[in-house]
Structure formats: structure tokens, C-alpha cells
Write a protein that binds this DNA or RNA. Structure first.
Length: 208
DNA sequence: TCATTAACACGGG
DNA sequence: CCCGTGTTAATGA
């Protein structure tokens, strides 16, 4: 575990901080598709992602959800940080996209480290910064792009996360992530297949 | 015009 | 049989 910490964070944190993380953090593993944080829940610790990918969803009043962004290894959750600092409830829903390994840091350490370790401060700031950029990208997608463009960037994103051109997902799941109906996804995917961009299989899409 | 909703047929596991 | 998929028709924004 300590080794994984060093692999993912060793270049940006000083050894003393890494050592302390290993001491106070709790190691956690979760399988694919598990709820990690539910909306309304109070957060008691901040997760550092060691491996895998997590998707962050924003629920609406009807119980539908919109995909906001993904977390990948070496990331932490900006929403969780804000929740911890303000001790407010979670505004988002986090689900593991793949099998994940996490290191849970107790909230008390977040502020303590911010004054103690310069690298931790930088890490927190850059987490906010990159998350803000990703959020902007998502807003651009939702506000300015048609569904076919949103679908394309969704698939490209999946390829990056899974590190594979074989995406195991159903049309219904995509529709729910993009907050639209399955009919639209099926039709657009069919169109993309006709344009030789992808190949469709049952419960699985191959990007060419 | 394009998304949504409902409905139906087909086929694979 | 159930689920994922492809398609269509009606309706609405």
C-alpha cells in the first residue's frame, strides 16, 4: 500500500507526508459499480484515489442523474474537500467506474496538513483547479453541444479511463449518464456505426 | 427539427 | 423468459 502511495503521489509529496498518510489513512477497496458517496451523506474522510476510476454524478429532483466528471488515479474529490471544510452534506453521488483502491484520510488531517505541508496545499489547490476546468468542459458540452457531440466526447472519455477501445456498457446506461433517452443513444450510435466510427455489439461498443 | 415517450419485434443468454 | 437493441408513431418544445 505504501508503495502504491509512493507510485502515485511520491513525486509531488515529501517523504514525511507520504509516511504520515500511510500511518493515518485507511486503505479501502471497492468493486466496480459500488456507491462510494451518496447525496445527502455527511463526509467523514477524504478519499485519495490509488487506482481505478470514479464517476461523479449530480442528481436532479426526479432521481435522474447527470454525469459531471471522472476521478482518476492520483486525484482526490474536490466536492469532498469542500464538504469537509464546511461540514456540509454531499451534493453529489460517487460510483466506482472500475474496481478502485482508495486511501481514506480523516478530515482533521486535511486542515492540519494544509499548514504543515506546502506540497499538500499545492495539491489541494491544483485539485480545485483541474476540477474547475473539467467542470467547465462539462458545462460546455451540456450547454453548447448537440447530443451527438456529447456522445462522442463521452465515448472518447471512456476510452481514456478504461484504457481500452472496448467499452462494456449498455445504451441505457449511456442515456442515463448523459441524461437523455435510450432511443436517442441507439439512433446516434447506429449513425456512428454507419459512419464506421464504431462497431456495435450486445452490451459492448468497439471504437474504431 | 429534434427529443421524448410508449409500444412492438427480434434475438441472445 | 428477461434484457438489450432497433425502429416507429405520436406528441411536444
Amino acid at each position: 500500500m505504501l508503495q502504491e502511495l509512493k507510485d502515485n503521489y511520491g513525486s509531488q509529496f515529501e517523504p514525511a507526508l507520504i509516511e504520515e498518510m500511510g500511518r493515518v489513512g485507511t486503505f479501502m477497496e471497492a468493486p466496480e459499480g459500488k456507491d462510494l458517496i451518496r447525496p445527502g451523506q455527511y463526509i467523514k474522510s477524504v478519499p485519495l484515489l490509488l487506482s481505478g476510476s470514479i464517476k461523479i454524478l449530480r442528481p436532479d429532483a426526479n432521481g435522474d442523474e447527470l454525469l459531471l466528471y471522472h476521478l482518476e488515479k492520483g486525484d482526490t474529490c474536490a466536492m469532498t474537500l469542500t464538504c469537509c471544510i464546511g461540514s456540509t452534506k454531499s451534493e453529489i453521488h460517487a460510483i466506482s467506474e472500475t474496481d478502485v483502491k482508495l486511501l481514506m484520510i480523516p478530515i482533521g488531517k486535511i486542515e492540519e496538513w494544509a499548514s504543515k505541508y506546502k506540497t499538500w496545499r499545492n495539491f489541494v489547490f491544483s485539485t480545485y483547479q483541474t476540477r474547475m476546468m473539467e467542470m467547465l468542459e462539462s458545462i460546455d458540452n451540456i450547454a453548447f453541444h448537440n447530443m451527438d457531440e456529447r456522445l462522442k466526447s463521452y465515448l472518447e472519455n471512456k476510452i481514456e479511463i478504461l484504457n481500452s477501445k472496448h467499452i462494456y456498457i449498455t445504451h441505457k446506461e449511456i442515456a442515463s449518464d448523459l441524461h437523455t433517452s435510450r432511443v436517442v443513444i441507439s439512433r446516434l450510435l447506429k449513425k456512428m456505426e454507419n459512419e464506421n466510427l464504431i462497431k456495435l455489439h450486445r452490451s459492448f461498443i468497439e471504437v474504431v
